[in-house]
Design a protein around this nucleic acid. Sequence first.
DNA 1: GGGCTCCGATTTTTT
DNA 2: ATCGGAGCCC
Length: 879
Amino acid sequence: MATDLKQEFCALRDTYIEKQFGRLNEMQRKAVFTTNGPLLILAGAGSGKTTVLVNRIANLIRFGSAHGSGWTPREVTEDDVKALRMAIMTGTDAPAWLDGMLRKDAVRSWNVMAITFTNKAAGELKERLRNMLGGEEGDEVFASTFHSACVRILRRWAEQIGYPRSFTIYDTDDAQRVMKTVYKELSIDDKFFPVKSAINQMSRWKDQLVSPEEALRTPARDTKGAIAAKVYAAYEKKLKDAGAFDFDDLIYHTVQLLAEHDEVREFYQNKYRYLLVDEYQDTSVAQFRLVSLLTGPEKNICVVGDDDQSIYRFRGATIENILNFERIYPGTKTIRLEQNYRSTSNILNAANCVIQHNTERKGKTLWTKNGEGDKVHVYTAENEQDEAMHIADVIGQHLKAGGHLADHAVLYRMNAQSAPIESYFTRAGIPHKIVGGQRFNDRKEVKDIHSYMSIVANPRDDVRLRRIINEPARKIGNTTIEVIADLAAQENTSMLEIISHADQYARLSRSMMPLLKFWQIYERLQESLETRTLDEFASDVIELTGYKAMLEQEVAKGHEDAADRMQNLGQLVNNVKNYCDQHGEDATLEGYLEDIALISDIDSYNESADRVVLMTIHSAKGLEFPYVFLIGMEEGVFPSEMSKYSEADLEEERRLAYVGITRAKQELYISDSVTRMLYGRTQRNEPSRFLREIEPEYMEETRSPALERRSQMGGWGSSYSDTVPGGASGYSGASGWGRSRTGGYGSGYSSGYLNSEYNGGSRGFGSEYAGRGSSSSGFGSSAPRSTGSFGAGYSSAGTSRNSAKPINFTGTPAAQKPAANTPKHYEPGDIVEHKVFGRGKVLKVKPAAGDQIVEINFEKVGVKKTMANFAPLVKITEE
DNA sequence: GGGCTCCGATTTTTT
DNA sequence: ATCGGAGCCC
């Protein structure tokens, strides 16, 4: 009788718990209820892996391993069964008095650690845990990136391994400076073996947990290997002296710490009884080791990954970690998630076609209940401008049908490909955001101020001291710096320590005054940190170091970028303030510096702004968009030129293609271009092998009208040549504008960054342009530019297909027909048609640099500003 | 010690 | 095309 009741209760409990996770599919639920022991989840793209992670953690905390256990802590009564049955039937929570019977070995939230690769992924996990478990419980789960987790561990134990608690985190720029110093000190010629290559080799060693000693001990394959081993040891010593870790060190030294200190390891193994690792296919040997050191004797380790999406082999990720997981952890349960909830079947089939050509894979085939959708749209462009125009066309059509800009993403193999798209979008007034490229925190002035801040936190840091000791110029030159370094080495102390009593050294007598002045500044900064808030401290740094005065002087001299730099420093202070607001009492200088070291551009990508987003496929991993443009699908671009000699590299490129394709939810647009200008040279490329790998039945191919050698182009084609004057000349005008706008210190990407950072989303570029006045030369001029390198490259390539249309790009007659080159004038009240935004009415007109800024109220998309002579704009009627 | 000019390299980069 | 680095001159 009692046993029957017990059985009934357990069956009901399983039903009850299953109902809590009712929205999951069978495989997902299986993953959630597999609570103990090693678990490998092979999660295909779009298969809901984050959902599984979140639900699995929720189940651990709410029910532990109760599901399917057939266990109860006490005798079951009729009332228990009745109450549970009622809860199931009514879909309500079971009464609190049943709690103890619904949970078995329930895990406390602080016993769970979830590791991801990006801050964005960690943030998303935390957010969803909060939603599912409630604020309190959700926040107590430790969800962070590999690197933040290591920083947290290292902060606590740094002194045990000979580092200061307030260690500095070096970025790649710092690392290069250190390596350069090492080269100099060891008199190594960087022409034979570039600093970058040495850093790369060293980074691979650290990924593989090879110590400097081991690297030296292992017979080198060649001279370069021997140099690398030599500089590795010297580099590590420098970082240790400076009290700094680079990104790879964070992992490497945490592994050493856990491996060598039993009590530390046991502390974490006891604390975190359940471990979950996301994107497992991208872990390195060191990260694998870290995870296994954190895994306690219960072996509650759950890894989620997709071998087909491993795209960071070049950075030390070893796909073997996922391929061998079952062997390394005996008793592993493996679950495959193959149902895709993201894409249409045409997109998915295309992705499957491509990835099937790889040999090194576990093998799985994604399927979906979603409809077929459109076929994959493949467009062959004439050149990169044509490609950009086509993308703008499609986006325009979508907007007219009520779509949103933010639903569109343009993905490419390398950052250099963004320039023509960005240029075209800017001219057409299409709001966009480029993710990646130069980060805000990588700007020189920002890094300088951060360096000042970090030497106050960590006075041992000679590398950052060198960076700013003479910035702004204060008459401390290289000779002096080397003398200080020499003295510091002799006395086995830091350079700053030497500077603090510079007057005691005869060798420093010449530069004594500037040095003591510098020391005074440093002392005042120390005082500021102690007495004022963090954001006040930041602004003191800008002021007291003379940085502000220097920039003001440059502005006075007429340096155009100085004002921008000043603005960036203002932004920096704002960022510090935001950090303080977020962390309240816990805000520390170390914490802020840690944040800026570990946070990347993609983390600040905010999907709420209505803009088209442009990024590399690497950056797009983990994201999804309704409409995806995968551009530059050409041999030599994608797959990249560098990868074509190695089968393993080609497979990685193919996985990257797979990642790109599977970002698309509704429609995928792939384009290739017959010619492409890259690094100032025009090349002719064959369509990518990845395109040929897609079965024709899933594709719909179109070629650019320009390629069909039709002189009379229909539709927008004709309006294009009418409205964007002079083809290449228009393009050169715009690029000239881009250059002057960024004032020469930013690249194409940073101009995009500026554009979107300081500009409201849908306002487009017009407002910013107006705000900056019109110092830009070359902007309004639609005069044809010299035939230039494109023309030259063109004719040298010279085939009949090429000669079909040199017109648009060399300023030959067709492009200069009067209609194209006559500046257009608009009056308020004019009705115009814009290629992308559709029909609208001109509200305001403002002259600027021989052109007009036209403010138009579009019927579909509202008010936007565009440049009259560059936007694809046609006047329909006059008032 | 500071500034200018010429030369060369130039995939991808969650941290 | 474009940026950064090294070398040269004041």
